[in-house]
Computed example of a mutant assay.
Amino acid sequence: MNLVLKSNTNIGVLGLGSLSTLFYLETLNKVYNRNFGDYSTCPLLLLNTNFNEINPFLPDQYKSLEANLLPYLKKMEELNISHLLIPNITLHKTWELLNKKQSFKYTISHPIELTIQSLKRNKQTKIILFASFFNMSSNCLKIYFLNENIEVITVSDDNMQFIDHIRKQVYSGITTMIELEKFNTLVNSYANDVAVILACTELSIAYKGAHQNVYDMAHHQINDTIKKLITS
């Protein structure tokens, strides 16, 4: 099957912190190159934010998040993109709130919606969330799954603390091989019994396995974005 680029699709990527943005860009290029070969890299427009204007208000100070994110989202419209990739799972709630008011002209690859679609295709009815401590312990992320009749199983408090520790260590660039091995073992051990959702970019970076029962939100976003670019 020969793949052809859609001529009317312009992909935009919102730069949100060096680590997560670099991970998304590198993975986008890898997936794109896997489809097109040779020296191909993913055509896109990158609009880098000042993440220090956004990060202090994560995860749920929505009034400040909306005010600081909106100018960048409007700028993306001015750049005439047709599809936007946001390299931050938690920030999609803010995008939803703004989109209800603004009705942006472009579409997005929504990591939570894409993950739920994949779970339903595979007839998965129970999950475990690997995310920030906030998203594992609050209903902010869980509610999306509960509304789709997908049960969310909570890991032990010790494991929550460890998962969040790995997230912070990856963000700071100071993980050890021993900790990463322990994290990957933990993911795979849970995945042997129930679907595991990686709902944080740092955890996507930390996970090196390929368990069929692990659903990586970042990779769902990236694969969906590439699909928007090509036609068979």
Rank of each mutant, 00 (worst) to 15 (best):
P43K: 03
F134H: 15
Q124A: 10
I197N: 06
E202F: 09
D38C: 03
F134N: 09
D224R: 14
Y171M: 05
T27F: 04
F134S: 07
F133Y: 13
N139S: 14
N188W: 00
T21Q: 09
E148T: 11
S172R: 15
I166F: 04
T27S: 13
K63M: 07
E53C: 01
Q102T: 07
S20M: 01
S18G: 00
A67V: 13
D158H: 02
Y207P: 12
L114M: 08
H92R: 06
L198I: 14
F23M: 03
I143L: 01
I226M: 09
L141A: 00
L14P: 10
I197P: 04
H219M: 15
K63N: 11
I127C: 04
I153T: 12
L203R: 12
I178F: 03
V187G: 01
Q61M: 12
Y215M: 09
N55K: 15
I143Q: 10
I116W: 04
L91A: 01
Y190V: 00
I197F: 05
E202W: 05
S40G: 06
L97S: 01
N52A: 11
M217V: 05
I89E: 03
T185H: 12
D158T: 05
N48Y: 06
K93H: 09
I54R: 03
V155T: 14
N2D: 08
S20T: 11
S64L: 14
I11M: 13
G37C: 05
P87G: 02
L198A: 03
L44T: 04
Y215D: 03
M1T: 02
E113K: 15
T185F: 06
K105D: 14
H165K: 13
A191P: 02
L98Q: 09
S20P: 01
K227N: 15
F133E: 15
L14D: 08
S64D: 10
V155F: 05
G209K: 11
D164G: 07
A131F: 08
L129W: 07
Q102E: 15
A131D: 12
Y190W: 11
D158C: 01
N48R: 12
T175M: 02
I178T: 12
T90G: 03
N50C: 04
N2R: 11
N135G: 00
P56R: 08
N2Y: 06
T107E: 13
V170H: 13
L114Y: 11
E179C: 04
I128D: 07
Y62P: 00
F23Q: 04
V196D: 14
D60R: 09
I222W: 07
R34E: 15
R121L: 14
L69H: 10
E53H: 10
V170N: 10
D157L: 05
L119M: 09
Q169L: 13
F57T: 04
P56F: 09
S132N: 07
I116E: 02
L45Y: 13
E151D: 12
P111T: 13
N159H: 10
K93F: 09
I81E: 05
T175I: 10
S189F: 00
I230D: 04
E148C: 10
L3A: 12
S7H: 14
L198M: 09
L91M: 05
P56S: 05
T175F: 00
L180Y: 02
N8I: 00
P71K: 11
E53R: 08
I108K: 08
S82Q: 14
S18C: 01
D157I: 07
L73M: 10
S109H: 13
V194D: 07
T41D: 11
I112S: 01
I222Y: 05
